[in-house]
Design a protein around this nucleic acid. Structure first.
Lengths: 118, 118
DNA sequence: CTGTATCCTGTAAGATACTG
DNA sequence: CAGTATCTTACAGGATACAG
């Protein structure tokens, strides 16, 4: 993964993505979700980015897309086993970030203040 | 973290970055490293990106930068407790990616093949 | 509702050259 | 050695309009 041209680097670089991670966390904690539910849950994501990230996750075998041929159409996304595995590693990361966010913001202010002089 | 304007979202978006994660993993598994050692370890990273990522990590209180005033200068980076915490969450993610990379690549080929018709 | 297609802009990031 | 500064370009990603 530390080699530029390695497949694992490629995969890693795409998974380590803000939207993908938030989507995985949402599907993991909220269960199967429709497109619009996901868009509401993942604040600030555009339809374009949501579609794109979901396609990536689907393509890599992490997420399943199910279309119910109704009118209006209903599309539900849920985690495949592979996605569940990843989600369980990502969730601690999310919880840690929320727990430590304030501390990091404080560190930044301190850093910025210390480097403002001069 | 699911709210667009929340500090934790901001912090999260910056930590969830290819280079930052690879740097954290390197420092965690290899111990304190000089700038050039890091650049060699994290394949494909430019000086610019390495500097920028390290600054971010330093600014947020995850990494410590130590300058030894010699000639030629020597600069060593190592993890602070906060960085060590994060690194321990990121490492499983890295190991998982390497373990599953092939499987995901296969899933992609299958997906692409299935969507090529038409 | 769940997308796709198009346009448009800012910015991420490589290449290169320079500095203490 | 360990950066900084500058330039340039590709692409990420928002806005908008349209479609099944």
């Amino acid at each position: 993964m530390f080699a530029p041209r390695c497949p694992s680097r490629e995969v890693f670089a795409e998974l380590v993505d803000k939207w993908s991670m938030l989507i995985l966390m949402t599907l993991s904690s909220c269960g199967p979700q429709r497109f619009s539910e996901l868009q509401r849950a993942v604040g600030g994501v555009s339809r374009k980015m949501l579609t794109q990230s979901l396609r990536n996750l689907e393509r890599s075998g992490l997420v399943r897309r199910t279309v119910f041929p109704e009118t209006p159409p209903r599309v539900v996304y849920d985690l495949l086993p592979l996605g569940r595995e990843l989600a369980e590693l990502v969730e601690p990361l999310g919880r840690w970030t929320e727990r430590r966010a304030e501390q990091m913001m404080a560190a930044r202010e301190e850093f910025d203040a210390a480097h403002a002089e001069g």
